[in-house]
């Protein structure tokens, strides 16, 4: 591997790592901070992907269209969906056992998959890259790098910084962190923890949906797309340390690096390398890299 190729692969792994963070960050909130084992996270991602596909023509007809207005409409819908879901289902799960959380959220996967099948069908669909970002930059002799992938990376970085700022620098973040450590105490201090959690949950769903919408033009949308990302999301959160946003970012970048170079250097083991990494890290630090609190 010569040096240019090495640099390009480094860029690939950075980009993949950031994409992983984007996809997993919603789970960091819901599983990491709120403590609900949310298997339906992949479904939220899928809903985002299908929103990018199915909402585009509707948004185009009502608001004159564009990828970014679709994104905004999708986000608003996602917040509403998250808020309603928390009120109807998830709010009953906080005090329950893990098994019950797994059962209910697994049930939600089936419901969402079936709804998707009824509403949009089982075909594979492509989502157009917005014209503004459709170009590509030359890279090496034969390769080019699509601008849209750089845009995804930028979104991830912005999201990571934003989340980090909110959680460690604002009053809201302080209340959320306190709530995840001791619900009753926070409540007795006069903070409406129920409402707070509803908002955090809605934010988690919205971020997962955002990830699905932003990733849709490069990943295309297809049945079962959510299940594909679900496992890797849990790996990111667990390696990073449950509840830590910084940890999730570091873990995602690490996985991107191992996966990319694994595919190139050890192709036969590429499928397991990420899990070997997880096992090693958990042996070394059973709580993950940056366990919160």
């Amino acid at each position: 591997m010569d040096f240019t190729i090495f640099l390009i692969q480094l860029l690939n792994s950075l980009q993949y790592g950031l994409l992983l963070f984007l996809v997993a960050s919603g789970l960091t909130l819901i599983f990491g901070i709120m403590g609900v084992i949310n298997l339906a996270h992949g479904s939220f991602y899928m809903i985002g992907g299908y929103m990018a596909f199915a909402l585009a023509p509707i948004v185009a007809a009502t608001f004159g269209g564009g990828f970014f207005s679709t994104l905004c409409v999708g986000l608003v819908l996602a917040v509403v969906l998250g808020y309603v879901l928390e009120w109807a289902f998830y709010s009953y799960l906080y005090e329950r056992e893990h098994l019950q959380q797994v059962l209910m959220t697994y049930g939600l996967i089936l419901v969402f998959e079936e709804l998707r099948s009824l509403l949009v069908g089982d075909d594979v669909h492509g989502v157009k890259v917005p014209d503004l970002l459709a170009g590509s930059l030359p890279l090496g002799e034969v390769m080019t790098y699509p601008v849209y992938r750089l845009f995804i990376s930028a979104v991830c970085v912005a999201l990571a910084l934003g989340m980090y700022f909110v959680f460690s620098r604002t009053r809201l973040g302080m209340m959320i962190r306190a709530g995840s450590t001791n619900r009753e105490m926070v409540q007795s201090l006069g903070i409406d923890i129920k409402f707070l959690y509803r908002v955090v949950f809605a934010a988690g769903v919205a971020i997962a949906v955002l990830a699905g919408m932003v990733a849709a033009p490069v990943s295309s949308v297809y049945p079962g797309m959510g299940n594909q990302v679900l496992i890797i999301c849990f790996v990111v959160v667990v390696i990073g340390g449950i509840g830590s946003i910084r940890g999730a970012l570091v873990a995602a970048l690490l996985i991107g690096l191992v996966d990319t170079f694994g595919k190139v250097l050890l192709p036969d083991a590429a499928g397991v390398l990420v899990y070997v990494l997880m096992a090693l890290i958990l042996l070394w630090k059973p709580d993950g890299l940056f366990k919160a609190g």
Binding site: M1, D2, I5, I8, Q9, N12, S13, Q15, Y16, G140, E141, V142, M143, S219, Q228, D259, T260, F261, K263, V264, G271
Partner: peptide
Amino acid sequence: NVEFQALLTQIAA
């Protein structure tokens, strides 16, 4: 898995 970028770079190389 559908993350192909690393292998596309290999092909280019």
